[in-house]
Design a protein around this nucleic acid. Sequence first.
RNA 1: GCAGGGGUGGCGGAGUAAGGCUAAUCGCGCUCGCCUUAAGAGCGAGUGUCACUCCGUGACACGCGGGUUCAAAUCCCGCCCCCUGCGCCA
Length: 974
Amino acid sequence: MEFLKKIEEKWQKRWEDAKIFEANPDPKKPKYFVTVAYPYPNSPQHIGHARTYSLADVHARYMRMRGYNVLFPMAFHYTGTPVLAMSKRLADKDKDLIDDFINVYKIPKERLNEFTDPLAMAKYFHQEIKGGMKEIGYSIDWRREFTTIDPQYNRFIEWQFQKLYKAGYITRGSHPVGWCPKDGNPVGQHDTAGDVEPEIGEFTLIKFRHNGYIFPAATLRPETVFGVTNIWLNPEAKYAKATVNGEAWIISQESVEKLKHLTRKVTVLEVFEGKTFIGKYAENPATMAKILILPADFVDTKNATGVVMSVPGHAPYDYVALEIVKKDASLLKEYGLSSEAVNSINALSVIEVAGYSAVPAGDVVKKMNIKDQSDSKLEDATKEVYRHEFHNGKMRQNAGKYFGLSVAEAKDKVKQDLISEGKATTMYELLNRPVRCRCGTECIVKIFQDQWFIDYGNPAWKALAHKNLEKMEIIPEEMRTEYNNIIDWLHEKACARKSGMGTRLPWDKDWIIESLSDSTIYMAYYTIAKHIKEHKIPPEQLTDETLDYVFLGIGSSEEIAEKTGLDAETLEKMRGEFLHFYPLDSRHSAHELIPNHLTFMIFNHTAIFPESLWPRQIATNGHVLMEGAKMSKSFGNIIPLREGLAKYGADPVRLSVLATAELLQDADFSPSVAKSMRDRVERLYKFAMEILKMRYPEKVSEKSMTAIDRWMLSRLQEHIRNATRSMDRLAVRKAIHTVLYELEQDFQWYQKRIANQKANAAKEGITAYVFNQILDVQLRMLAPFTPHICEEIWTLIGREGFISLNAWPTHDESKTDIEAEESESLIMDMVEDTQNIIRATSIAPRKICYYVAASWKTKAYLKILEKAKSGEVKLNEIMKEFAAEGDLKKRMKEVATFASKMVKDVSKMPEKRRENMLMIKALDEKEVVEDAKSFLMQRFNAQITVYNEEDEERYDPKNKAAVSVPYRPAIYIE
RNA sequence: GCAGGGGUGGCGGAGUAAGGCUAAUCGCGCUCGCCUUAAGAGCGAGUGUCACUCCGUGACACGCGGGUUCAAAUCCCGCCCCCUGCGCCA
């Protein structure tokens, strides 16, 4: 490990000193611009992050070796509220967070105090993350680094938003958000206790009337209004008589504040206990039916209005509650309810659904054996009824004009109609309440007024996004439909908040542009960040005109230079650099960013830039699991990246996160995988050191090589081709497997095959040459994945320069030797057959005889192959042709048996193999087997003899020779 | 619910685009052997299930059920299960 560590440090320093990853416009080379979503510095990175970033780095390194002028930059995303929230929690001495910081992230205790300043915290993690990126060996051009709170970047974002604004892509409106009434802030998932995402739903409030008062019953199923049999109030809870936007409402006391946050004017007139209204009648606005108000403990006055309409036919809660009220004589007495009136209430059926009776709620309650209102199974029962009714249910006749509609359709129609008739209204509520803010307060829904939105719902804009997507390469391709769907779904996205770090909206400085909106086209900023730093360009000089010129080519450099005081030449250089590297060639990210960031990137590019500068490729990848389990702080299975690097080494970590899964799947990291990768890397080193001891000639003539040498070199070509193909679609797992394991397998076979060849200087030279070829190719194909060890070996074996800047090997068709490959697979098959026979007969072989097929068989075989090329082979036809050949005619009976068998075999053969065999024509099988004799002798520890089937002198006591077929010699063992 | 991805051996996972070469590349694990003072590493061999007349043979096996075909893990239809995303959160 020490050894790997030293190598890593050495090469990271050399790369930095030689500035080899600093990319400048170079007209001599094609450019390639790769970026990966910049990290958010609110914690150090862990092994999981390494996947996305390593993939991007491997991509960058690969393209660099393919001869491109690759730009791979990095920046840091300070925008947003999470850092603020964390900082505040630290200030509040949040124990869990402090524990995480100390135990998981290994942050020195004494530094924690600084972190009550959010900016200090962000800066700390920024350096922490950057350190990790250097230690893992990413080929980043650090000259272009920036943060999203740099004033120059703020100018860039202002410029972008002005463009969006002018294009009509910015709208304003009101919007419900999760809200902490104590903190006075919107709450997202990271603000809540237990990281719960607040789910906002819209309840329909149906206005039941009683004596001039409105009971606004809250429901998520307005279509069931026709099945209401009564109203539920919680008898023990407090209700308020209040004026709500001018109407007299009876609502739970808890709902008063909520309605206020939902922009309603509420004045409380009087407070009652729920029981006050029990036994009174109210009128259903949809049916005009007079219904009783009854008591129910299950009514949660904290949910919506605390007034519930009862639909026992379709709501399990209502069904159970009604049954209880009916049976409970003391309850009836307590509230002075007439038992006749109550008992006459029967569930109404308004929805017909296959597989259920008229009262689906009753069916499910009975099935689940639910007895009382507090039974937790009621939740499941409700879900089951709803699921079936929503998808398969139809409205019955008593639903009036909605008769025959599906529940899904009726739900919306009823709601809209009731609202427009003034019989209902709506109210937002949290569906997964209670959701608690980290401060402990229960969250509510607030309508955030005059919020700014980016209008991703704009149809013309959607069309542009689709157009970009169509031209773009999506890796993996399976994700394309996902993007298409998302472009279709997206609508207005709130783009600014009142708190957090970032850029202020240029036309309304109270708002700060939120993080998913200020990170959509920043790849363009990398191209000028270098100049901004180099020339210390202040934000004031980055006027809208400057940026218009640099990014859109509007105006002249002289004019702008004059106005801004910027150097005209610098302006032109910036413009030139932007045009050189743009458009973006590849964008990398984890695939959870597809529904937001990545699609936003597409949208914004089409809004700001001309079509020629739209992004060309997006590649996304899955997560990293830790020994099969999800990584999470609560499982305590997070390995911070730098800790992992220190423990296992950079190259092994890179391999571990990339070699265990294809892009879409989750990779599985574990110490044992990392360890085996480390062993693999060390073995490569040892192998190289052995080759280093070998002497080999500069050039080796083809002729002096034996078939097995040519076979190895031919296989090497095949592996180059496969690895390159895999890399071109970023199938890194496949590529690593090809380079590391498949190549290795052939190499091991090769070593076995040559182990017994007679030693002489020429042979040794050839072997050394072949070994060296393998090492050379393997190193260059591994360099993107394990750059450190590859650089080290590269230098040790005396190669010039950095392997990182060397060429990726190219497939050389001329080195492919089909004959050698076919000969070798003959040997491999033969070895396997021999082995099977030995096992089957349990003979300890002393003598093994091989009989290669007679020449007439080969002749017939080739004929059949020839025929198979042009479609199906008809046995009778081919037999006629055989009959015309003298040497075949004299043994027609044998030929017939042989041919019928071969026709079958050939038809099952892959096209490629048939072509190869035809190309080779007749292989001299006897010679092939003779060549492998010493190997076979060693392999089976027996005497080996090779005969031709037609050899009169052959030793063949069991007459096995007859069963030989081309490419499959007969075997006799004794 | 909607959308996307997936379900293959003890495990991870190839194979599915172009149906037959293939019941399974490769890795891990496990068993046996070699090497070694020992362990590890390395090397070699074996390793789907069941049944039987158990050096062999047969049947069954790629989520479940149908279908197309001489032939299906692969194509078609229906169903079940798992994972991910669904917005103000980076």
